[in-house]
Amino acid sequence: MIRPTIALAMQPSRTQHVLTPLLLEKLGGIGHLLDVAPMERFDDERSVQLLAEAEILVTGWGAQPIDARVLCRAPHLKLIVHAAGTVKGLVDDSVFDAGIAVSHAAQANAMPVAEFTLAAILFAGKKVFRFRDLYVADRNRARTVPIQAEAIGNYRRIVGIVGASRIGRRVIELLRPFDYRVIVYDPIMDDSEAQRLGVEKVNLDALMTTADIVSIHAPSLPATRHMIDVRRLSLMKAGATLINTARGAIVDEPALIDVLKSGRIDAVIDVTDPEIPDAASPFYDLPNVFLTPHIAGAVGLERTRLGEMAVDEVCRFIKGKPLLYQVHRQDLQHMA
């Protein structure tokens, strides 16, 4: 039996731990791995040779876009598996026009984001960051003990999920063991799906008004740009927390900064627009902001999940089984 040829395309500096030696060995066992060194571009001599032979292409962060010009160099290509999240910006219509199957590991990337979000929700409800700052500043408990009598904590709090996306649904699953009321805004989700998930479907204004903690999991699309604007931020309860692990562009950041400066709400922010805020941004200094550098997704050893899922998809394809995470052309319009 002739084994299908497999090539890799990603930036090694950005994809450590994705394809471990064990996973590379597994790829080499089910197919003919043309080169363990991934392509970082598609126009050098080595890449031209690899593309000419490749039937399966495993991509990752840093891979160059695959368009009609690249496909001209890859006449035998049948499958692209992205060992990362979204394939937006990686593939275009020419890939689907050519009948090439596309899959991705977004489900694997959703898991650490959801775990990060769960931790953020628990810490936000307990006002952990406020307690930490006061305790460190005072070196005593004069100010922290009285706060414990305030209406804080996680018992029977209301969590609002903006977007029943892959990540949003995983967050909902993780919240089930806790004593939360979960409300969800998603224009695509119907009432029966909300009932199946065990959540209450509401409109966005109602969610912003009702939730003690608002967690954003919507895709970044023209329709969602600045969806969380000055008016909707004004609807949030005093003392509520906004969590954003989705995309910075979904929030009107100048409006968010203004409301944060007032001290009326708190924020846990893992994503911003631009990706790295200006050095003078108040996000760095506001005491009611917990800012992280886009780490909710797969980092370090968590990246191996991406490689495992990608290799499993390659195995399924070679064995003639349906792909579990296939991406279709129409899916792109709803992707982050």
Rank of each mutant, 00 (worst) to 15 (best):
R14P: 05
T15S: 11
V18L: 12
L19D: 00
H32R: 14
D35C: 10
D35L: 07
V36L: 08
V36W: 13
M39C: 06
E45G: 15
S47Y: 05
V48A: 15
A63I: 12
Q64W: 08
P65I: 05
V81N: 02
D92Q: 12
M111R: 13
P112R: 01
L122F: 06
L122P: 04
A124V: 08
A137K: 06
R141P: 15
A142V: 14
T144D: 10
E150L: 15
R157C: 01
S165C: 12
R176Q: 12
F178A: 09
P187Q: 09
E193N: 12
E193P: 07
Q195W: 15
R196W: 00
G198S: 00
G198N: 01
V202P: 07
L204N: 04
S215H: 05
A218H: 06
P219G: 00
S220I: 02
L221D: 02
S234K: 11
A238R: 13
A240N: 02
L242N: 06
A249T: 06
V251I: 11
D252A: 01
K261M: 13
D266S: 15
A267I: 01
V268W: 02
D270I: 04
I276W: 14
P277E: 11
D278L: 14
Y284P: 11
L286E: 07
V289F: 08
V289W: 08
A296C: 04
G297Y: 11
A298S: 11
R303D: 03
R303K: 11
L324R: 10
R329P: 12
